[in-house]
Computed example of a mutant assay.
Amino acid sequence: MNEYGEEWFYGTSDQAGVFEWFIPCHVKGGGGEAIFAEDKDRQQFLDLLAELITRYQAICYAYCLMDNHYHLLLEIPKANLSQI
């Protein structure tokens, strides 16, 4: 649970016992500094994200890229978030 009382990790289990994770991710630059200076930086990030999602079989339901942080809503069927 975060400081706002929200759960950060949501898990579900189907009848076969397969557990899936739905994870909202919020990542900020240090000290509020920009992590995306230009649109090409955002595009490079999205290209890398697409590659990693394909490689690790994740599903990205939503994203939001801000100058100094980003949000992702991911489903991680194999519980391998640390690799992404």
Rank of each mutant, 00 (worst) to 15 (best):
C25E: 09
D67R: 02
D39L: 04
N68G: 00
E3S: 14
E20S: 06
A50T: 09
C64M: 06
V27I: 15
R42V: 02
E33T: 04
V18A: 05
Q57A: 10
Q44R: 11
R42H: 04
W8E: 13
P77V: 01
I35M: 14
E6W: 10
R42M: 08
R42L: 00
R42K: 15
F9H: 04
C25Q: 03
N2P: 11
S13D: 01
E75Q: 14
L65V: 02
A62K: 05
V27P: 02
F19I: 12
I59S: 11
Q44T: 10
P77H: 08
Q15P: 03
I84P: 11
L65T: 00
F22D: 05
T12V: 14
F19H: 15
P77F: 07
L72A: 10
G11R: 11
F36D: 05
H69V: 04
L46D: 10
M66F: 09
Y61P: 01
F9A: 07
E33A: 06
L48Q: 12
F36L: 07
D14M: 09
Q43W: 01
L52I: 03
L73Q: 06
R42I: 00
A34C: 07
A37S: 10
L52G: 02
I23V: 15
I76V: 14
S82P: 03
G17K: 09
I35Y: 07
A79P: 00
H71M: 03
F19C: 12
F22N: 09
N2M: 08
L49R: 14
E51D: 13
D47M: 04
A37T: 07
S13V: 13
R55N: 02
H69W: 11
G11P: 04
I84F: 15
Q43D: 04
K78D: 15
G32N: 01
Q44F: 10
L65K: 05
A50G: 07
G31L: 08
